[in-house]
């Protein structure tokens, strides 16, 4: 793994500067069924292709942001600050 991650604050940096934060998820509402909660906690899409993911710039600005990454070619095509959704 040696691709570059474009931090919205610092620009493209070596992936080793970052912590991977996993797929972006939508947290269920408190009254969701146990099955929905279990899926949220443990099940991941693990998409083969473009995935929306969290990254944290550990050795840089120490901020979280969201990327679009092609998980096959390891190319990050877009990154930006998280929005409310």
């Amino acid at each position: 793994m040696s691709f570059l991650v474009p931090c919205p604050q610092c620009g493209p940096r070596d992936v080793y500067e970052f912590r991977f934060g996993g797929e972006t998820l939508r947290r269920p509402s408190p009254d969701a069924t146990p099955l929905v909660w279990t899926n949220y906690r443990y099940m991941r899409v693990n998409r083969d292709g473009n995935a929306r993911e969290w990254w944290f710039h550990r050795l840089g600005c120490r901020r979280w942001f969201v990327t679009e990454r092609d998980t096959v070619r390891n190319v990050v095509s877009a990154s930006g600050w998280a929005t409310g959704d």
Partner: peptide, 16 residues
Amino acid sequence: IDAMEQWLTWWLAGTD
């Protein structure tokens, strides 16, 4: 501490 800083800031990211 590092994990906690990240945990707290993650929950703040994208919220107002």
